[in-house]
């Protein structure tokens, strides 16, 4: 049984009033613990594909199954909860909430789940130490450097130990050295926690270093 299956998914977006079919009858299985890279030209729909995987966007047709359960058949609250528990996102930009400290940002998914605060903060602190930011817990995002903020974002994605980590060009805005640090973290996380990770990237070297490689072109996903 695949962890996440995509069946016959169609998705289009609209540019200047024209429909662009970025996903055409895409079907794919992701197994538990896989580390997958996804490459493709700009505008090929990599982000859209990732959003559909992460239920942030609904497909026009087709279904997404998580452990054989149809994700888009659930109601809004269930989908939100699914996103909260099962999926961790890392974006190209860190997207931390500016009003909250690094610690609060990391603990946010746990707080959304209405976990008890002290416990959430304790685990968040541990995670921040793990990504090397033990000294920066009480800083707001505005006071962090790009690499630090991205590490906070990664810690936030992992705080609830999700089954799937979706990373959308997580190092796109970083210099190669800092980026390599993030990549290393991603690999460690995948290995240590057994989290299935899908990493969208333009970095061919990085893509080649992943055990499974996907390419999105012409609305089709192919193994590369």
């Amino acid at each position: 049984m695949a962890l996440l299956s995509i069946r016959n998914v169609f998705k289009s977006y609209f540019l200047h009033g024209k429909r662009i079919d970025v996903l055409r009858a895409v079907s794919l299985d992701l197994e538990k613990g896989e580390l997958v890279s996804l490459v493709g030209a700009s505008g090929a729909g990599k982000s859209t594909f990732l959003h559909v995987l992460g239920t942030l966007d609904a497909p026009a047709a087709g279904e997404v199954f998580f452990e054989d359960r149809s994700v888009f058949s659930m109601n809004d609250a269930e989908i939100a909860e699914f996103r909260n528990r099962t999926i961790g996102f890392v974006f190209q930009s860190h997207y931390l909430l500016p009003e909250f400290t690094a610690l609060e940002n990391v603990a946010m998914p746990a707080l959304i789940q209405r976990r008890e605060r002290a416990g959430a903060y304790a685990y968040a602190r541990e995670l921040l130490e793990r990504v090397g930011l033990g000294q920066r817990v009480d800083h707001r995002p505005g006071e962090l450097s790009g690499g630090e903020a991205q590490r906070v974002a990664l810690a936030r994605a992992l705080v609830l130990k999700p089954a799937i980590l979706l990373a959308d060009e997580p190092t796109g805005n970083l210099d190669p050295a800092t980026g390599e640090g993030i990549h290393q973290l991603l690999r460690d996380v995948n290995r240590e926690l057994g989290i299935t990770a899908v990493v969208v990237t333009h970095n061919e070297t990085l893509a080649r270093s992943m055990p499974r490689r996907l390419r999105l072109a012409g609305g089709q996903v192919t193994e590369a």
């Binding site: 989908i79 939100a80 909860e81 909260n84 997207y95 931390l96 500016p98 946010m108 959304i112 789940q113």
Partner: peptide, 16 residues
């Protein structure tokens, strides 16, 4: 707007 999107991505429902 950005924060709302992030909160939704983190699992806050529309009602939230």
């Amino acid at each position: 707007r950005k924060e709302i999107s992030v909160l939704k991505a983190l699992g806050v429902s529309d009602g939230g």
